[in-house]
């Protein structure tokens, strides 16, 4: 009965979801902007500086993961769910996990240096925005693992890809906004 579809239902559902998520991230970013533009010192005095380079390196890992999944999808559309696609999918998943763990390690260090959620509005926004993204990474990784068995369906693979590309794609914006300034 589900006929005349231009975009398959799982993909359309994920696109609608991504639309909401985009608004959500935009809200956090604009809130961050408003508070930052009203502050006299940014980052505030006495707060540790963020690890630009190590996180930059970590960003590359995440971007590589997104790119890999995309190439895997290209291969999948040509040849179906074969062994190489599986390998690429797993590598992408593992790179995502590495990114997540590395971020957690960075957080532990920052907390030791005295940057916490309540230490300043700077810390609050750092953990809010980056943490919110981390939650998305974690959820997307779970979804990638969970839907592994249903990937032969093209709609499911494209939906997972759309979700992961969103999570990967939003990261450079957050990195540029929170770390680079």
């Amino acid at each position: 009965m589900k006929n005349n579809s231009v975009i398959s239902s799982p993909v359309l559902g994920v696109i609608a979801f991504i639309f909401v998520e985009t608004m959500l991230f935009t809200s956090f970013i604009s809130a961050f902007w408003i508070v930052r533009s009203g502050a006299i010192n940014w980052p505030p005095m006495g707060q540790p500086r963020l690890p630009l380079l190590t996180t930059g390196f970590n960003s590359l890992i995440l971007l590589a993961s997104g790119f890999l999944l995309y190439t895997g999808y290209r291969l999948f559309s040509k040849r179906g769910f074969e062994e190489r696609v599986r390998k690429i999918y797993f590598t992408s998943l593992i790179l995502g996990i590495i990114f997540f763990l590395f971020q957690g390690y960075e957080w532990a260090r920052l907390i030791r240096f005295g940057l916490t959620m309540t230490s300043s509005i700077y810390g609050s926004f750092f953990y809010l925005i980056i943490g919110f993204h981390a939650v998305h990474v974690l959820a997307a990784l779970f979804i990638m693992a969970f839907f592994y068995k249903k990937l032969e369906k093209k709609g499911v693979f494209s939906a997972v890809l759309a979700l992961w590309l969103f999570v990967v794609g939003v990261w450079p914006i957050l990195y540029g906004l929170v770390y680079l300034k």
């Binding site: 609608a16 909401v20 985009t22 608004m23 959500l24 809200s27 509005i121 609050s124 809010l128």
Partner: peptide, 25 residues
């Protein structure tokens, strides 16, 4: 609804942090 609710959810998350762990958003 879907286009407008994101900002409120974002605001509510920040408000919950203010209520629970004493952040100062």
């Amino acid at each position: 609804f879907m286009a407008s609710v994101g900002p409120l959810i974002a605001g509510a998350i920040m408000l919950l942090f203010d209520q629970f762990i004493g952040t100062s958003f």
